[in-house]
Simulated assay, not measured.
Amino acid sequence: MNIPLIFWIVPAAAVIALAVAWAFYRSMKCEDEGTPRMREIAEHVRKGAMAYLRQQYKVVLIVFIILALFFAYLAYGAGVQNPWVPFAFLTGGFFSGLAGYFGMKTATYASARTANAARQSLDRGLKVAFRSGAVMGLVVVGLGLLDISFWYVIL
């Protein structure tokens, strides 16, 4: 198989995006969460958000399995679509769910840290907020590019 040299820019960009996301996440985690009351509230927010995410993923998983089975039927039973579609659907859904998990985790850890940083200065608060928000975008881009790169090689 002859893969053009420019192709390697895409997975390299994905790895760079994930590395920057990790650096922003670690930077955010080093920030102080604030007063004991702020820490307590942040912990409750994290628990609630993770409970919500677990419940949401239970429902999404059911729909996801039904759709995957439907795509498998269309590919292998009816023969009306490419046989790789069910697998691409599974990898895309997996990476999408993973990005959502990392985004929620980052957002819930960043909320009190952003509020505490804003108590010190607007610049510091905005820096924590924007970098924490960038984690989600960078993870979506990084995982998406890795998934697309994988399917490019396969197909």
Rank of each mutant, 00 (worst) to 15 (best):
T106P: 00
A88D: 12
V85H: 12
L98Y: 08
A110M: 10
N116V: 03
N116W: 13
V85K: 14
R113E: 02
F87A: 14
S121T: 15
A118N: 10
G92E: 08
S121F: 02
M104E: 08
P83E: 03
T91H: 12
A99M: 07
F89P: 05
G77S: 02
V80M: 11
V85N: 13
N116I: 06
A78G: 08
R119F: 01
A99C: 02
V85G: 04
W84T: 01
F102H: 12
Y101K: 10
V80L: 12
F94S: 07
L90H: 02
G100S: 06
P83A: 12
K105M: 07
A78V: 11
M104Y: 01
T114C: 11
T108Q: 09
Q120R: 13
R119V: 00
S111Q: 12
M104A: 14
Y109S: 07
A112K: 05
G77I: 09
W84Y: 14
F94A: 12
G77C: 10
G100R: 13
F94R: 01
G79V: 12
A115P: 01
F94M: 11
T106I: 02
V85I: 15
Q81I: 15
S96I: 13
T114V: 08
F102C: 09
A115H: 10
T91Y: 11
S96D: 09
T91C: 09
P86E: 02
T91A: 13
A107I: 02
G103E: 07
G103S: 08
N116A: 09
A115K: 08
A78Q: 11
A117H: 03
T106Y: 04
A118Q: 04
R113N: 04
V80A: 12
V80K: 06
F95A: 09
F102K: 15
S111H: 14
Y101W: 10
A88E: 15
D123P: 00
A110F: 04
P86D: 01
F95K: 07
G92P: 02
T91P: 08
A110G: 14
T108K: 05
G97M: 13
Q81N: 06
Y109I: 15
T114N: 08
G100A: 10
F89Q: 12
Y109W: 11
Q120P: 00
D123K: 09
F89L: 15
M104R: 06
Y101A: 04
V80H: 10
A107G: 13
S121D: 04
G100M: 06
G79C: 06
A99L: 07
G97R: 03
T106G: 02
A117Y: 06
L90M: 14
A99V: 05
F89I: 01
G100D: 09
R113Q: 06
R113C: 04
T108L: 00
P83N: 13
Q120F: 03
T108E: 10
G97Y: 08
R113W: 00
A88G: 13
A78E: 14
G92K: 02
K105Q: 06
A107E: 01
S121Q: 04
L90S: 07
